[in-house]
Design a protein around this nucleic acid. Structure first.
Length: 423
RNA sequence: GGAGAGGUGGCAGAGUGGUCGAAUGCGCUCGACUUGAAAUCGAGUGUACCGAAAGGUACCGAGGGUUCGAAUCCCUCCCUCUCCGCCA
């Protein structure tokens, strides 16, 4: 959520920065805000008088219940109440309207985010591992080799659930578990505290992290219970500290979390219909940070390095993109995407996204911190990054490590976790 | 799912219609005493909004109602705990 107070002070600046993300008209919001504030002044003056009358009546009742001034005060009290009864609903409606609009406005892009209108204008800032690009000219797509080996099964999963679901069998399942364990171990060693959170989350949680109201169609919902299937561990972890005031000394807080993730993938019906790239359910190890505002852009660099470290350890070739303003996510001020080389696509494909959401989620989730001895509170900054998407990592391994004889080599770093060198 | 109890400040806990943002204790901060510490004593100690300030307003799980006035009474909802039932 953007800061209404700051918006009020620099509307032109906000408008300019928002326009880098899309089309937004702030004029109605500003007008509603002004009306609301005028009403609020009137209302609180009336309430002050009402409180005063209440106290006066109380005093007089205590002295002499027959005091002749009491009926007059009561009358005035009733009049004030009648006026309040008119103002209050108006103000409440205005506030609700303002809130509704605020919840649909995205975070402002940071000045270091490259300006551009869509993914074609993202900027490659780094590339790693050219020497590990596969030389095998006959690589089968991961879904073909996987089904051939009997470690992936899509057809039966469609029967059990729907299209875009997969089952992992035997060594496939073991590889998935090994990847989860490997990634968690690495990130825990890097200083992240593991959390295994609830996978079903309520509407308020999704709103706080920014998935709702805008992306309701993207999430699976359990209608009877006001619970949704988590689309990313970012949501439960953000909300872990919702409505809390943290001590400054507690920051930064680093968490990592393995969760399955569920996405409806509405509107992507033609894309990536085969394989592990775009499923309704996939596993992910997520990195998450709650930090002091002045450190968040440095923290973004380190969260990105922590995600990159996994790809490097697995010797998977990848590149790093700085997303341009037009391609930036709703809650993000700055995002790096890590893209792994995927031979079946003949290009790099997203495997991690690392974002600095600045105070955007903290405002929605009301997560603040207090400096000892200082007055007031500040919003924390939140960052998240995949470290990494497991299914896509599996796909990258099945392809990049595919040998001419059709076997899959296991990346060295992973061997202790799997207890074998090839699949 | 059934029956009962309950939700008050960092914690514990009082408050059943009147000057209650809320006693008291603990904790915490500052000060005094002390060589130092403990103990003791004194002062302070929620959040947000409006305001240059003085000050004002809101918040006692949430929402509504009664009243001049609600933490306190009424209604609805949510959550927690205990017992019973069912179940992985």
């Amino acid at each position: 959520m953007i800061d209404l107070k700051q918006l009020r002070e620099n509307p032109a600046q906000f408008q300019t920065r928002l326009n880098l993300k899309g089309e937004y008209n702030l004029a109605p919001l500003l007008s509603l805000d002004q009306q609301q504030r005028e009403l609020e002044v009137k209302r609180s003056q009336l309430q002050a008088r009402s409180n005063e009358i209440g106290k006066l009546v109380g005093q007089k009742m205590k002295g002499n219940p027959q005091d002749p001034e009491i009926p007059g005060l009561r009358d005035e009290g009733n009049q004030v109440k009648a006026q309040l009864a008119e103002l209050e609903p108006k103000e409440r409606d205005l506030k609700a309207e303002i809130e509704t609009i605020l919840l649909t406005l995205p975070n402002l892009p940071d000045e270091s985010t490259p300006v551009g209108k869509d993914e074609d204008e993202n900027v490659e800032v780094d590339r790693w591992g050219d020497e590990y690009l596969p030389t095998n000219p006959n690589i089968l797509p991961h879904w073909e080799i996987g089904e051939k080996m009997g470690i992936l099964n899509f057809e039966r999963s469609t029967k059990v659930a729907q299209s875009r679901f997969v089952s992992l069998i035997g060594k496939g399942a073991a590889l998935e578990r090994a990847l989860i364990q490997f990634m968690l171990d690495r990130q825990i060693a890097a200083g992240y505290v593991e959390v295994l959170p609830p996978i079903l989350i309520n509407t308020q949680s999704l709103t706080a992290s920014g998935q709702l109201p805008k992306f309701a169609d993207e999430s699976f919902k359990c209608d009877r219970d006001d619970l949704w299937l988590t689309p990313t561990a970012e949501v439960p972890i953000t909300n872990f500290y919702r409505d809390e005031i943290l001590n400054a000394e507690e920051l930064p807080i680093y968490h990592c979390a393995y969760t399955p993730c569920f996405r409806r993938e509405a509107g992507s019906y033609g894309r990536d219909t085969r394989g592990l790239i775009r499923l309704h359910q996939f596993n992910k190890v997520e990195l998450f940070k709650f930090v002091r505002p002045e450190t968040s852009f440095d923290e973004l660099e380190t969260i990105r390095r922590d995600a990159e470290a996994i790809l490097q350890a697995l010797k998977l070739p990848y590149r790093v993109l700085a997303l341009c303003t037009g391609d930036l996510g709703f809650a993000s001020a700055k995002t790096y995407d890590l893209e792994v080389w995927l031979p079946s696509s003949g290009k790099y494909r997203e495997i991690s996204s690392c974002s600095n959401c600045t105070d955007f989620q903290a405002r929605r989730a009301n997560i603040r911190f207090k400096e000892a001895g200082k007055k007031g509170t500040q919003f924390v900054h939140t960052l998240n990054g995949s470290g990494l998407a497991i299914g896509r990592t599996m796909a990258a391994i099945l392809e990049n490590y595919q040998q001419p004889d059709g076997t899959i080599q296991i990346p060295e770093a992973l061997r202790p976790y799997l207890g074998r060198e090839t699949l």
